[in-house]
Design a protein around this nucleic acid. Structure first.
Lengths: 326, 326
DNA sequence: ATCCTCCCGGAAAGCGATTTCCCAGTATGC
DNA sequence: GCATACTGGGAAATCGCTTTCCGGGAGGAT
């Protein structure tokens, strides 16, 4: 491997000068030497050794991204936005997938700390329970080492946050559905303590004055939606699944039981996953700018602002065919 | 930050001993000292500095993964498998997304080289044209620096490869469709020089003795499928889209024009994307073990085998409702 | 002319690990 | 019993880059 020293020697300059030319520095280098160094680097095919650079600088160019599941299009979209934004800042993204295992989440943060990652971004909702303590401790260690932390989803760990207006979005959706004449609701509510799920569920129910929708808990994924949909009360005219993927599961469940959407029952989700746009019937949902959320998280984590700052993003109700007025 | 030296001092041993205890080494350390070092590390909260380790060892623990688009569930699934496999080997994955820009692909490989990444995995089909030369050159440089390269998709760059039996899969699909009585076919063939697309298209057409399906080129994504579907000849009874995402686009196009699937025309895709399983009608397709492909690529890249080895994976025809016998 | 600044180049001290030697002490072979 | 491994511990040399500090020359102000 060609080292900087090789380049310096080949160009007849000192190591310091070569470094200044090739890897941005505050100091200027005269045009003559600069050209010589650049040419030498090109001729020799020099490539910076990032590990050495990181060691010397004390900070790397890696941004860690921890998601539950890359196959879930929700996270895929966030990851996509994050990767793009990172690239714009000359950073590179390392992803970890936890598959909802809190221990893995901690392990990844720890590993990112070891990498001296510039920032770690936690995407995806967490449970609101003591198991978060371990994570919090690990994050504190990470921060103590000079790293930044950003969370996309809910305002929790006292870190930089891209906060989603889950309540407001769900409430707006509920109002729209109510205005369309629906009175009997069911909510496929996800896990009882998963923050995002809880917020959406509460936001929805809270916007329905005098009504008390049927709440059905279950996993936060497609199969959870399928399962929950099986125990919907007769008489319900409108079902809200707290995310699109669950709505897809519910749709499948309805289909399997001969219940037509939207003829027999209306169905709405949350997130507006792009991959799902071609579903029939098209899903009524609350659109979230997922890629942008990922990107914002990166910006936040890279900004010099002291103290945790919070960016709010709002959802937009999108009425599609899966809902019919009563 | 706590350094290894701190730990060594705290434990009353030499730096060398501490290193041997904490970061695997061939050399043994006596039980007594070993315990002391471990305790000291725990008390101080020592965390290895990976950059320093990488520099000293000359090889890092990063695996680079380059995909076109994380939002495309095809790549998301591969990435998921790769991340999981990497984790099993104590490695961590860095992803880059190119959005089909060959220059970005090269840039990522270059950047991964600078990171001294242990291996880079290229997922996604490439064009069969001279633009690949730049990539090839960059890969050679990367290899010269001691890195491994694995490609998932088609056997191309002379690297380790997870090769998909595109022809065979498409041929099997064609035979099945032919056996169901279809004779008038159209192929939504993707870009004319995209290797995966070409192989699937040729495999399909080649298995249709005496018939010459209508070939319609277009982009390899959802909108490409939509667009291509618009110019299908009347009389065609069965449409093969060279991937599922394109099939989804075609489905949407048919729906928009009032063409019923499978009543008016049958439709098949390729890949069997999990997120799309709840589509109506369910898509006939060729199932690929995407996550496994990602994982195998990692294994391949991490194996010590000299010389490029090739793993073959086969597709399995899955007939679902989007196809009807004639 | 003289003194002060700038500006730019180079020498060298880190950054935090790994690993090669070198050594002493103990076990093994004859 | 004596030479010969073998074992586990430590000192110190790297790994490749950044950056501080020093110094000499050029330009401006007085």
């Amino acid at each position: 491997m060609v080292t900087l020293e090789d380049v310096a020697r080949h160009a007849g300059v000192s190591l310091a000068t070569a470094s200044r030319v090739l890897n941005g520095s505050a100091r200027q280098v005269g045009a003559g030497l600069r050209a010589k160094v650049e040419q030498a680097a090109a001729e020799l095919g020099y490539r910076t050794n990032v590990a050495a650079q990181t060691l010397a600088r004390g900070a790397g160019n890696v941004i860690g991204l921890v998601v539950h599941d890359l196959v879930d299009p929700y996270f895929a979209a966030i990851a996509d936005g994050a990767v793009k934004a990172a690239e714009d800042h000359g950073m590179v993204v390392m992803v970890g997938t936890t598959h909802r295992d809190p221990a893995k989440e901690i392990a990844y943060v720890s590993s990112l700390g070891a990498q001296r990652a510039r920032a770690v971004i936690l995407a995806g909702s967490r449970m609101d329970d003591p198991s978060a303590a371990g994570l919090r401790a690990e994050l504190d260690r990470y921060r103590a080492g000079g790293g930044r932390v950003a969370v996309v989803g809910q305002d929790l760990l006292g870190a930089d946050t891209v906060a989603v207006a889950n309540r407001a979005g769900a409430a707006a959706l509920a109002e729209a559905l109510h205005a369309m004449g629906h009175r009997e609701f069911a909510v496929l509510a996800g896990p009882p303590r998963l923050i995002t799920a809880v917020e959406r569920c509460e936001g929805f129910a809270g916007a329905l004055p005098g009504l008390s929708p049927q709440i059905i808990h279950g996993p936060f994924d497609r199969d959870g939606g399928y399962g929950a949909a099986l125990s919907i009360d007769p008489g319900v005219t409108c079902v809200f699944a707290v995310n699109d993927v669950m709505a897809v599961g519910a749709l499948a469940a309805f289909r399997d039981r001969g219940i037509r959407v939207p003829d027999d029952v209306s169905l709405a989700g949350f997130d507006d996953i792009a991959t799902l746009r071609d579903l029939v019937p098209a899903l009524t949902t609350v659109r979230l700018p997922l890629a942008e959320m990922g990107a914002r998280a990166v910006e936040l984590a890279l900004s010099e602002e002291a103290g945790p700052s919070v960016v709010h993003v709002e959802g937009e109700v999108v009425i599609r065919e899966s809902v019919r007025a009563r």
